[in-house]
Computed example of a mutant assay.
Amino acid sequence: MSIVEDLGAQVRAAADELPIGQLAQALEKFGQAAERLRWVRQESADPMGVPELSAATEHAETAGYALRVAQEQLAAYLAAIGLASDGAPTPRGPREQRRPAHDAPREAPPPGSAPPAAGPATAPRWWAVRVAELTGGLQGPPEAPDETVREPRELLRRVVSGVRSGDRARLHTELRRAHADVGLGLAAVAPPLLRELAGELLGHPPRADDLPRLRRDLDGRVRDLLPGLPPPVLETLLTRVCRMPPPRRAEAEQPHAADPAVTAGVLAGVLLDRLGRDLPAEAERERQEARDRQRRDDEDRRERDDATRGREAVRQRDAAWERRAAAGREQAADARRRLAAARERIADVRRDSDG
């Protein structure tokens, strides 16, 4: 076995060990748990772990998207070194020697490497294809990803700018030119911001009964920017903002890996536009998070103090009632003693009269 074949075997082993199957089982269990909680909540207003379950499901789905991207990247690497997925060497003709451009790694080519030979047009990237389907824009000729966008936060800033400008073509371009791993990162950086912005729009933290209003206020604008978006994707995102179990979906209705990420970024832009705000800078965001943590700590402390005062008031009321009950029991006992004494005197009088 050559060094290349040995390396290919190691790469295939790493791809086979990715826990995609286990993650799918975990998502299925999360779905079953959400169904049970949805049934239980019909009889109770207690959230009973729904926020935690929704967050866990969201993290698991994001992990699933990342694993699928990793699997595709490993397959692309095997093709790049001349190995097929089954380990057999691929033909070495001029056509096959071209480096695949299916979201190829962002590392620069080694110094002195020869440029690829001219050949047929580069294959389109799956991320760009899906973005074109969602935005209803033209796919356009295949092009290399924008290397200046290396962080999901930067892509989110550009998406928000495109949404606030009302320029769908600009939004389409910014999303389409992003690397797949950067684009999928929107599913991690946008959801915490969504709940905060929705709270500002509503005037209080989003609750289950706020879902119709959020749907009414945001659905039209999001669908105008993403005309190809499947309806369940936005509904799922809004239910998670309201800390509700996501709607039930059949296996055939599972969203494309790019859909939740793109929708989260666009929804953040729509909310910021409704509030007349820009995406906060990193330093401002950290300060805002610190203020939010302090506010939550203060609210928790006030709630604990209120609960302590409430318990103390209950204890005082109970003690007062106990004192009143004890006084009543004492009065009843005194009345019984007086009654017994009166009966004794009556008996004495009767005995004297009979004698």
Rank of each mutant, 00 (worst) to 15 (best):
Y65V: 15
A66L: 13
L67W: 04
R68Y: 13
V69E: 11
A75F: 02
A76G: 11
A76E: 14
A76D: 07
Y77M: 14
L78H: 03
A79I: 01
A79M: 02
A80Y: 03
I81G: 03
I81T: 00
G82K: 08
G82S: 06
G82A: 13
L83D: 04
L83Y: 02
L83A: 02
A84Y: 00
S85I: 01
A88I: 01
P89R: 11
P91C: 07
R92D: 14
R92S: 10
G93E: 09
P94Y: 00
E96R: 00
Q97M: 09
Q97S: 10
R99I: 11
P100V: 08
A101G: 11
H102F: 00
H102L: 11
D103C: 05
A104P: 01
P105I: 08
R106M: 12
E107D: 14
E107P: 00
E107Q: 12
E107F: 09
P109T: 08
P110C: 02
P111A: 01
P115N: 05
P115D: 12
P115K: 06
G119S: 14
G119W: 12
P120A: 15
A121C: 07
A121F: 02
T122V: 14
A123Q: 03
P124N: 05
R125S: 09
W126C: 03
W127L: 07
W127Q: 03
W127V: 06
V129D: 05
V129I: 06
V129H: 02
V129E: 06
R130L: 08
A132C: 13
A132Q: 07
A132H: 05
L134R: 04
P141T: 15
P141M: 14
P142C: 12
E143I: 12
E143N: 10
A144T: 11
A144M: 11
P145E: 08
D146V: 04
D146T: 11
E147D: 15
V149G: 04
E151W: 13
P152Q: 09
